[in-house]
Design a protein around this nucleic acid. Structure first.
Length: 210
DNA sequence: AAAACGATCTACT
DNA sequence: GTAGATCGTTTTG
């Protein structure tokens, strides 16, 4: 994909703290269309966020912060605009902490549409299939070289990794939402948002709305 | 020390 | 769409 100077300048502006200091659902929806930017020694890359999932603070048993702060989830309690990275199934997933300090709500970034630095992503992922580069939270982390070491990273600094304020797909956003009540124990509520019709969205894109 | 549990992925039908 | 792999973390004895 060709790289235009104008676009590159837009990628440079990190979203400010206030952006993240809002309701987690609001942030999850508003993150769609924004650009995730990664500057690393082994390559620069960027992608448009097409799928997110909101995790509602410690009142939601599906959230990692449900049982209160501990060694692993500490970042979630430290305030908006931080990156929370955790491991699962021997892989990493990245979250953006939202809402005021202590609330511990976060948005899981589930997929991006690769825009720039496809070569770097392909190298890190071990595949050249564009569809498989960053669709899925763990694949995304691998493609963008995000590991546990980035847990607690301040996204508003605009260094190494951040989310650009620009929106490549200005209004009106065609946002889809799929919610489901947890089948397990205490009714877990999951709120997944995605850009409708985008082929980089993972999983079943059933339900409409939005 | 052992067992169970995933905010997942891949392969395959 | 679903079964099976996979391994760090948490929970249990």
């Amino acid at each position: 994909m060709r790289e235009s100077p104008a676009r590159h300048d837009l990628f440079r502006l990190p979203l400010p703290r206030e952006f993240f200091d809002r309701s987690v659902v609001e942030v999850a929806r508003d993150l769609l269309g924004r650009i995730l930017v990664r500057v690393a020694d082994d390559g620069i890359c960027a992608g448009r966020i097409v799928e997110t999932e909101a995790y509602l603070s410690r009142n939601d048993s599906a959230s990692h912060s449900f049982r209160g702060p501990n060694r692993k989830n500490a970042t979630m309690f430290l305030g908006p605009g931080l990156l929370y990275v955790y491991t699962i199934h021997a892989r990493c997933c990245m979250n953006v902490v939202t809402e005021p300090e202590g609330v511990a709500s976060a948005v899981l970034i589930r997929a991006v549409e690769p825009l720039e630095g496809l070569e770097a992503m392909a190298r890190r992922r071990g595949t050249t299939k564009v569809l498989d580069l960053a669709r899925g939270p763990a694949r995304l982390c691998e493609a963008f070289a995000v590991h546990r070491q980035f847990d607690g990273w301040d996204l508003t600094r605009g260094e190494q990794i951040w989310i650009a304020a620009c929106d490549t797909d200005p209004e009106p956003k065609d946002v889809g939402m799929s919610s489901r009540i947890g089948v397990t124990s205490a009714g877990d509520l999951k709120l997944r948002f995605f850009l409708k019709g985008n082929r980089f969205v993972s999983g079943p894109r059933r339900l409409s709305a939005g």
